[in-house]
Nucleic acid binder design. Sequence first.
DNA 1: ACACAAGGGTTCCCTCAGGGAACTGAGTGC
DNA 2: GCACTCAGTTCCCTGAGGGAACCCTTGTGT
Lengths: 151, 151
Amino acid sequence: MQRTQFGTMACSIARTLDVIGEPWSPLILRNVYVGMTRFEQIQQDLGISRKVLAERLKGLVGNGILERREYSERPPRHEYVLTAKGTELCDLLLVMVRWGDRWTAGEAGPPVLYRHHACGEISHVEPHCSVCGAPMHATDLDLLPGPGQAA
Amino acid sequence: MQRTQFGTMACSIARTLDVIGEPWSPLILRNVYVGMTRFEQIQQDLGISRKVLAERLKGLVGNGILERREYSERPPRHEYVLTAKGTELCDLLLVMVRWGDRWTAGEAGPPVLYRHHACGEISHVEPHCSVCGAPMHATDLDLLPGPGQAA
DNA sequence: ACACAAGGGTTCCCTCAGGGAACTGAGTGC
DNA sequence: GCACTCAGTTCCCTGAGGGAACCCTTGTGT
């Protein structure tokens, strides 16, 4: 948890950060996304403190990103799975991957490749305009006040 | 700065987090993106501690996201502007905005609207496949080991 | 029957990063 | 000379992250 709460700001970036902005949260999400759904697995893979992992998982469940599901009743065992809200958040991870691959991967190249089901090719994510379908980057936009703007 | 350093992990998400994962960094980037480029402006707008702002700006400049530019010699005054690397990172902000608008804006609607230069319409960003151009989400992908994978 | 292991946490203490306010220092305007 | 602005820096205090140990329930080997 940040010292300053971002959730109350009239800014969708701040509110998104309120959900996954805490240290480790994006990496936890990533691990669940790739199928590493159990406490012990995640803890060992990331090398995160057990305390912090427990806090983050509780937070992500509370925010509706993950769901705590019992996969064995006896003995009681739980795993964490993505909700619809959480799955959509994974698109954000893909954009982070794209930027990281481009600017930080260096000589060695990207550590993971992504194959698109639809076309079967190794590709990466590219932002497009939801209206006209053309590529859309941060420099191609005008910002206008919206209905939810603070008074 | 996180206690655990993410930069050395063989994961583009972790490496991206190493650059903008610290608390406040994405919001600082956002402010520079919308044209709020000066220390005093950013500090007052965000309500961030001056100490932390100075640290973050130093970090973002060090990572090649921002450039510290003198806009007046006498008196010496500086502003922070986006580099190419930083501008591309803003695409990440747009995806955060999109998710935040969808899942956290509530009744009031999005606080800011984005108009695409190319088509002139209010739109939002949507991830597409760089190869086939079709919409691409986290669930449409297979993950394969890449060349930069850890040994 | 008993020891031990594994999953999934919780509790403890310690350190260090964030918050807040005060201070600095160059330069300008009056 | 005095106030004011920008852009930081320094100070102390609190609270979050790291690490290790501990806990509880159930399963398993002997």
